[in-house]
Nucleic acid binder design. Structure first.
Length: 458
RNA sequence: GUGGAUGUAGUUCAGUUGGUUAGAACGCUGGAUUGUGGUUCCAGAGGUCGCCGGUUCAAAUCCGGUCUUCCACCCCA
């Protein structure tokens, strides 16, 4: 016996039921994106390694999937490097392509490459899989989908506000209760500046980010561990202790940050965004959260993260403003802002809360039971008419036992079954059975179409 | 990358100090029911116990390796 086939670690197959549910999420997201004037782009699964390397930090480079060159790749590698067995150096000779790690960097590449054809501000969305050679865990895969929306080439804070509006719209449609956490990199920079630790901004934000998770004492310990003087940590305490409503925190920050130009700048931006949001009549609540840091270093302004209040789960959407993403590809001073929806996590949340709809456009709405050749011939034209009406319909392909055919409908969750035997054929009608209620009625093809369209969810 | 668990029918799990033909429930297939499913009853199929190797008269059980899945850290979606 051959061994059972498997798929690579951290990858998944999706069954019909799963694909249908995933499409529900993707379709909802896409619909809203389009509604706000965003257009889709797609980029290749693989990029040149030179495009990807160095964009995600040292850790990120390790997590890149690299693609071996084609042909006799070893013959072109230097003998010295082969003998040295230095993987990093050798890789550059054996591989020049890699699988994309996220959608943001390929997007930046795209913008730079087609800068003369793109109409700015460029509003694009992109829903594609990305790959990371991470160690898999639950909710963490080596292949997963990202849904990114970005506006590039506009400094207006209206973009930030609109993205939050989009978030509100999407999660409203998905019937998920969420909160938006808002912060600003400039506020964090201002804080670092005031305690005299500007060069430790990253360490400080990474540590502050963990406040909720590991508590104040551990955060302070971690800060000390990063070489930040006790005096500076002491100065940081009032900020870490800030609590209250967004407006309370804002006014307290105004005092604290008054000596920092950058900090005040970030504060002003935040207030502007909040003012825009006031005019938008959102149902989602937006809170200022200073502990929100987001790992990635390329954010320069607003930082956004979304959490569900319905269950314990990490963020399901996040993003922010980045001022110089295209700079690394030689096109400086183009500002962008965007967010990414974590489809896999949203899936887990909806599944856990049972929020997926019962009916999907993909599901067959009516199954014609097959009683034999004559009955088949009677059903086929009607089946054809029903399909023309846009109703998903199928006929059981063989004259199997009734029990088996109804069971098939049950398992596929087909809501209606049409039966036609001797009596129906002479009456030129069908018996239409509702599989959930068990009720059945004798109807003409026209009536059947009407019922099927009426009861359809959409 | 570091540390820790896990793996037995399709699924969830039993399996005594190593000892004959490895069990249950659910699911599956068929029948009771020649045109009526989700209930019930009856019957049946299905496992070289993740994979490779070692110890032993004897391994699902002990040991080593490997892979998978999961958990914590790191990082992240």
């Amino acid at each position: 016996m051959a061994e059972k086939p498997t798929i690579p670690k951290g990858t998944r197959d999706f069954s019909p039921a799963e694909v249908v549910k995933r499409n529900y999420i993707f379709d909802t997201i896409k619909q809203v994106f389009r509604l706000y004037g965003f257009q889709p782009i797609e980029t290749p699964a693989m990029e040149n390694l030179s495009t990807l390397m160095g964009k995600y930090g040292e850790e990120g480079d390790k997590l890149l999937f690299k693609i071996l060159n084609s042909g006799d790749y070893l013959s072109r590698a230097s003998d010295d490097l082969l003998r040295e067995k230095d993987s990093v150096k050798l890789t550059s000779q054996l591989s020049e392509k890699g699988l994309r790690y996220d959608l943001t960097v390929p997007f930046a590449r795209y913008v730079v490459q087609y800068r003369n054809d793109i109409v700015f501000p460029f509003r694009r969305y992109q829903i594609q899989p990305v790959w990371r050679a991470d160690r898999p865990q639950k909710g963490r895969y080596r292949e997963f989908f990202q849904c990114d929306v970005d506006v590039i080439g506009s400094n207006s804070l209206l973009n930030e506000a609109e993205l939050i509006q989009i978030i509100d719209d999407i999660f409203k449609r998905l019937k998920l209760n969420t909160v938006v956490k808002l912060n600003n990199r400039k506020i964090l920079a201002g804080i670092a500046e005031l305690i005299g630790q500007r060069e430790h901004l990253t360490d400080i934000t990474v540590a502050i980010d963990k406040l909720e998770k590991i508590g104040l004492d551990h955060v302070n310990a971690e800060l000390a561990g990063k070489g930040i003087p006790a005096e500076a940590i002491q100065k940081l305490q009032p900020v870490l202790a800030l609590k209250g409503t967004t407006s309370e925190i804002l006014s307290r920050l105004e005092e604290i940050l008054s000596q920092s130009v950058t900090g005040m700048n970030g504060l002003e931006e935040t207030k502007t965004i909040l003012r825009y949001l006031d005019a938008m009549d959102l149902s989602i609540s937006v809170e200022l959260d200073l502990t929100l840091a987001r790992g990635l270093n390329y954010y320069t302004g607003a930082i956004i993260e979304v959490k569900t209040t319905d269950m314990k789960m990490g963020s399901i959407c996040g993003g922010g403003r980045y001022d110089d993403l295209t700079g690394i590809f030689g096109l400086p001073d183009i500002s962008g802002v965007g967010v990414s929806f974590g489809a896999e996590r949203i899936y887990d949340v909806l599944e856990h809360l049972n929020l997926f709809p019962q009916e999907y456009p993909e599901i067959t709405r009516v199954l014609f039971v097959n009683f034999g050749e004559r009955e088949e011939a009677y059903c086929l034209p009607v089946l054809e008419r029903i399909r023309r009406e846009g109703i998903n319909a199928e006929i059981y392909p063989e004259n199997a036992k009734m029990k088996k055919q109804l069971n098939y409908a049950n398992k596929k969750e087909i809501p209606f079954v049409a039966l036609a035997g001797e009596s129906e054929m002479t009456a030129q009608k069908f018996t239409l059975k509702n599989m959930s209620t068990g009720v059945q009625q004798l109807v003409t093809p026209e009536e059947m179409i009407r019922i099927l369209l009426q009861t359809s969810a959409r």
